[in-house]
């Protein structure tokens, strides 16, 4: 029984890793590519004023947008490539953990009876507030 559970865990772990790798690797490569082009500097300068509010550099906007609109795995791929500091990584982690995969999760929560759009608004607000709070607290 124990060995069956360990085997199931191993299979589950490998399948999560596979799903993860299929998203993390291409995102990592694309973000790294951007870093080698002037596009990254442009994105960084464009979003710097907004991202400064939550204590993050402008280029972190890529990870935030990916996490909010697609999923956490894509955001992880971007974060891994961005060379953020420990503090910045913790800020972006909490922000994205509170609110992520918005289109998908809102669709799911509409089916559970919770008002998905209200929940979306609450989570997004909390996400930004948590970022602001951590940028001062850490």
């Amino acid at each position: 029984m124990m060995t069956a559970a360990i085997k199931r865990g191993l299979q589950k772990g490998l399948s999560v890793t596979l799903v993860l790798a299929r998203i993390v690797v291409p995102v990592y490569i694309m973000v790294t590519f951007l870093k080698y082009t002037p596009a990254m500097g442009f994105i960084a300068r464009l979003f710097e004023p907004v991202m400064r509010l939550v204590g993050l550099p402008g280029e972190a906007s890529i990870a935030i947008v990916l996490g909010y609109l697609t999923n956490l795995y894509a955001a992880l791929g971007a974060i891994a490539s961005l060379n953020l500091s420990a503090k910045e990584t913790t800020i972006i982690a909490l922000m994205l953990l509170i609110s992520h995969a918005m289109p998908m999760e809102t669709a799911v929560s509409l089916k559970t009876g919770v008002n998905g759009l209200v929940m979306l608004a609450i989570r997004t607000l909390l996400s930004v507030l948590a970022g602001v709070a951590l940028s001062f607290a850490l």
Partner: peptide, 8 residues
């Protein structure tokens, strides 16, 4: 997963 990329 976030521990893996260096979050607290």
């Amino acid at each position: 997963l976030f521990l893996a990329v260096g979050a607290d």
